[in-house]
Simulated assay, not measured.
Amino acid sequence: MYAIIKNGGKQYQVNEGKTVRLEKINLPTGKNIEFNKILIFVNNSNVQIGNPTLSNIKIIGNITNHGRHKKINIIKFNRRKHYKKKQGHRQYFTDVKITSINSI
Rank of each mutant, 00 (worst) to 15 (best):
M1P: 06
I5G: 00
I5L: 03
K6H: 05
N7S: 13
G8R: 01
V14W: 01
V14I: 11
N15H: 06
N15M: 11
E16M: 10
K18A: 11
T19W: 12
T19G: 07
V20K: 03
K24W: 05
N26M: 08
L27G: 00
G30I: 00
G30N: 01
K31T: 15
K31W: 02
I38R: 09
L39A: 08
V42K: 10
S45K: 14
S45A: 09
N46G: 00
Q48K: 14
Q48I: 13
I49Q: 07
I49H: 03
N51G: 13
N51H: 11
P52N: 10
P52D: 09
P52F: 14
P52L: 12
S55A: 14
N56K: 13
I57N: 00
I57L: 00
K58G: 04
K58I: 13
G61H: 01
N62D: 04
N62R: 02
T64C: 02
T64S: 06
R68M: 12
K70V: 04
K70M: 11
N73G: 08
F77W: 09
N78E: 09
R79S: 06
R80F: 10
R80Q: 13
H82G: 07
K84F: 14
K85G: 06
K85W: 11
K86I: 15
Y92E: 14
F93R: 02
F93P: 04
T99P: 06
T99E: 15
I101S: 05
N102C: 03
